[in-house]
Design a binder for these strands. Structure first.
Length: 491
RNA sequence: CGGGGUGUGGCUCAGUCCGGUUAGAGUACCUGGUUUGGGACCAGGGGGUCGCAGGUUCGAAUCCUGCCACCCCGACCA
């Protein structure tokens, strides 16, 4: 592994790409637009999955699995849904290869053409609602609260590790309800789950809001989202929750018998977060030394590095290190004791910093003499010499403190880089000179939204929830507006 | 699909304009020794059909033609 990262402030994209590779998270795959997630990166994703899955279960959801392939005809059933995804679908047209007699190698067997093409799922609403049709007959079958962990494929023209890849991993929840109100409650509940996960686990502050019509999910009545700010000031959509109304129920003819004996279409929701969250995690906290992971999602929370010259030294240090390793593990802290003699301590320090391990404990001969250990925290780089009798409590407390500190830091950054403007001139001035979010009045029309996007590249990330209504006039058209919306350049 | 760029040991690249020893460097890897509290040092070593195919030439990484791949910018992006 080579040394060092490019500076974050000089070239953010380069820094990001190098970090993803050097921290051992992922790399570009030989397959166009796809990525290989390496073990360390996958370990972080698994931590995310575990936390989210638990939250889904606690809110009454169950996991299931639906097919990767979707018959083309399913797609055409919901008009706006097709339109939204048509341009980025991978399509299976044949089911067999054969030897190429003329040129060698293999070719697609032209005789093995599928009667109906299969779409590699870009999202699963259609296959899932096709099943729901058979699963739902009565109000007694509702609500149906299902989640699936899966991969999906969207043939993006340009890709970026974690942020936009042709294939990505995600979870997609698909629920069906007897009433509109219940479905709306579900939609908002899942948005809250995502926001809580982002803030409490990822330590990434987010703005909750509703998408404008332009940015709404294809097939939804309303799309809710959480938007996070990256360290270059750009916005990243970190999760979405859609109120589908009766759109898919009507498209797939999913009706149920009510208590009163009438027949009605069910109300739906869908919601998802993806490996894109990995990108958010990386870009929200990391620095020029590498990744900075919040303790709650760090695969290794504490690393112990022995400093030794001889086998005898190591043996003595290991005795102490094994002791605290066990004590920490008893307190559910994940510890790695790295006593490899193939790398020097300095090399290990740099390596674990690159990997974002929150706490490092170094034990050397000097510490053995004094009954101490050196504890270094990744977020602030501070080192403290701690008496070994207090080390376990100190470390456990430190992990909490780091989790809190990382969040506070990201939160302060987000606030410092958020602006409120009243005129289009101010708006453009800030976009040109400063990164960040901008709150401004908007007249509510797609036309204005598109013009602002074309002129400045800034888009409306969301119409924030919980923000005070405040009368004003649109920065672009001057027409009346009853609330400020969140503008930013986005990933 | 438009515009720009790059293909040379695992990785990052020099060499190409102006053809000419055995194709180089850094890093990584292997061996030995000295080291080990912030990415060690010295010595030795292995590893390359110079993207692919054709052509020009006594001679091609270098010039010509064709093809392929990848990257960046734009268009696209629940």
């Amino acid at each position: 592994m080579s040394k060092g990262l490019p500076s974050r402030s000089e070239d953010y994209s380069l820094w990001y790409n190098e970090l993803v590779k050097k921290a051992g998270l992922a790399e570009n795959s030989p397959v166009r637009g796809c990525m290989v997630i390496k073990p360390y990166g996958f370990a972080i994703w698994e931590k995310m999955q575990a936390s989210l899955d638990k939250m889904f279960k606690e809110t009454g959801h169950s996991n299931a699995y639906f097919p990767l392939f979707i018959p083309k005809s399913f797609f055409s059933k919901e008009a706006s849904h097709v339109e939204g995804f048509a341009k980025e679908c991978a399509v299976v047209t044949h089911y067999r290869l054969k030897n190429d007699e003329e040129n060698g190698g293999v070719i697609v067997d032209p005789d093995a053409k599928l009667e109906e093409e299969l779409i590699v799922r870009p999202t699963s609403e259609t296959v899932i609602w096709d099943s729901y049709k058979n699963w739902i007959q009565s109000y007694r079958d509702l609500p149906l609260l299902i989640n699936q962990w899966a991969n999906v494929v969207r043939w993006e023209m340009r890709t970026r590790l974690f942020l936009r890849t042709a294939e990505f991993l995600w979870q997609e929840g698909h629920t069906a309800h007897a009433t509109k109100q219940e479905a709306e409650v579900e939609t908002k509940q899942m948005l809250e789950v995502y926001a809580e996960f982002a803030e409490k686990h990822m330590a990434v502050p987010v703005t909750k809001g509703v998408k404008t019509e332009n940015e709404r999910f294809a097939g939804a009545e309303e799309t809710y989202c959480i938007e996070a700010m990256m360290q270059d000031g750009r916005a990243l959509q970190a999760g979405t929750s859609h109120f589908l109304g009766q759109n898919f129920a009507k498209a797939f003819d999913v009706k149920f018998a009510t208590k009163e004996g009438t027949e009605e279409y069910v109300w739906g929701t869908s919601w998802g977060v993806s490996t894109r969250l990995m990108g958010a995690l990386i870009m929200a906290h990391s620095d020029d030394q590498g990744l900075v992971l919040p303790p709650k999602l760090a695969p290794i929370q504490v690393v112990i590095v022995p400093i030794f010259r001889s086998e005898e030294d190591l043996a003595k240090i290991s005795e102490v290190a094994d002791g605290i390793t066990k004590e920490l593990r008893d307190k559910n802290v994940s510890v790695q004791y790295d006593k490899r003699d193939t790398h020097k301590p300095g090399w290990k320090f740099a390596e674990y910093e690159m990997k974002g391990v929150p706490v490092r404990i170094a034990i050397g001969p000097r510490d053995l003499e004094n009954g101490t250990m050196e504890v270094a925290r990744r977020d602030t780089k501070e080192k403290q010499v701690i008496n070994k009798d207090n080390i376990v409590d100190y470390t456990v407390g430190l992990l909490d403190e780091i989790q809190t500190n990382i969040y506070s830091k990201a939160s302060a950054f987000k606030e410092e880089n958020t602006y409120t403007v009243d005129t289009y001139d101010e708006f453009k001035e800030i976009l040109d000179t400063k990164p960040g979010f901008i709150y401004a009045h908007w007249d509510g029309s797609s036309e204005t939204e598109e013009k602002i996007k074309a002129e400045t590249k800034a888009t409306i990330r969301c119409i924030p929830l919980n923000s005070n209504e405040e009368a004003g006039s649109c920065i672009y058209s001057g027409k009346p507006s009853k609330q400020r919306v969140l503008f930013a350049k986005a990933y």
